[in-house]
Simulated assay, not measured.
Amino acid sequence: MTENPNMYADMYAIHSIPTANMNSDDNGMQKKVSVGGALRTRVSSQAWKKAIRDRFDERAFRTKKAVALLVRKMMDIDNGITEAEASEKAVKLLAEEVSLTKDLTTKALIMLSPSQIDNAARYALSCDSKKYSKKDVREILKKDNSLDLALFGRMVADDPALNVDAAVQFAHAFSTHRIEPEYDYFTALDDLQNKDEQGASHLDHTEYNASTFYRYANVNVNELIHNLNRNKEAGIAGTVEFIRNFVLAMPKGMQNRHANKTLPSYLMVSLRTDTPVNLAVAFEKPVIISNNEYGYTDKSIERLENEFNSTLKMVDNPAATFVLNLESDDTKVKGAVTAENLNDLLQRVSETLTKAVQDEDNND
């Protein structure tokens, strides 16, 4: 874990999504949660993190087949090695750090970056397998994390020294308002059934609803820098990339059925040095629309901004706050700068973090 002063990038979104079932339970029903005594739609943090992770150009392998990955990489590097020889080396190398089954898979999923696989393969090829050093193997598997591994962390029960503390905290998204589940009953007919046959060949139903979500996540920027070999430029770029994909990514559950890919109406990014702050309490009481009123987005944005201002009675003023609101050019957030578009907001975040890191260097 990093010992540098903290810098947190809090990000908040108000995101209206039409009919959808992005994240279902084991019965195919939309996940839900009761907040303040009112039933809400919920999308798990895991579902949204997976959607974000899938957008990264390079990402770690999350697999039990680490031996097979290592064998393939060794054979790519050295055309003269046989599969049996590579397998023997891979097993002996990985056995220094993790438990393997009789099928030569790891007992639990493990995340390994492409660079870690490449470095491990080159090390395995460079010396006799009898001379593999646990210290060397551990060092190879600890450095050169991919961005997703550095952001979301890694737990290795066999050797906690390989654990990577996540730089991201990601909340479950939930609707700002009460919901009433709705159901789609559907049938399918056999195109080739006889004319005298009646009835459908398939009957089923699925749940869906339309919701305006409150979404929140934060990045511990200095922890991310630490996880990326203490590369400050990579840490800042990684934070910006995460924010971009926080906005653009969406879980793919039943997306072909609903075509529900939308963008947030509102994004706020706040850079803090004291503590991350989740503003979910703004929606403990569900947003309610009166007679002759329609839409939850505007009232949800108003609730969020008011809650942000209220928290300033309890925490320090942020180093900087940036707002992108598709509904309005104005904001009630104290001290906030309004961005023209997403690229403008991300550029401002990058410049602010770069200056903060330079100031830390000057104070060392």
Rank of each mutant, 00 (worst) to 15 (best):
A173R: 05
A173L: 09
F174Q: 11
S175R: 10
H177Q: 13
E180H: 04
E182N: 11
E182Y: 07
E182M: 11
E182C: 07
D184N: 07
D184E: 13
Y185R: 11
F186Y: 14
T187Q: 08
A188I: 00
D191L: 01
D191W: 09
Q193N: 06
N194P: 10
K195P: 13
K195C: 08
G199E: 12
A200F: 14
A200L: 10
H202E: 14
E207C: 03
Y208C: 06
N209Q: 08
S211D: 11
T212P: 10
Y214Q: 05
Y216Q: 02
Y216W: 11
Y216A: 00
Y216P: 02
Y216V: 00
A217D: 04
V219P: 08
N220E: 12
V221S: 04
V221M: 01
N222M: 14
E223I: 00
L224T: 00
L224G: 01
H226G: 03
N227T: 10
R230T: 15
R230W: 15
G235C: 03
G235K: 03
I236K: 05
A237Q: 15
G238S: 04
T239H: 07
V240M: 05
P251V: 05
P251L: 06
K252E: 15
G253M: 00
M254F: 04
M254G: 02
M254N: 14
N256I: 04
H258W: 15
H258S: 15
A259R: 15
N260A: 11
N260Q: 12
K261T: 06
K261Y: 05
L267H: 00
L267T: 02
V269D: 05
S270D: 02
S270Y: 00
L271H: 02
T273K: 14
P276V: 04
P276Y: 01
V277K: 00
N278D: 15
V281T: 10
F283C: 09
F283H: 04
I288A: 05
I288H: 07
S290P: 13
N292S: 12
N292P: 08
E293D: 13
E293V: 04
Y294L: 10
G295R: 05
T297M: 12
E302I: 02
E302Q: 06
L304G: 01
E305G: 01
N306Q: 08
N306L: 05
E307T: 06
F308C: 00
F308V: 01
S310P: 09
T311Q: 03
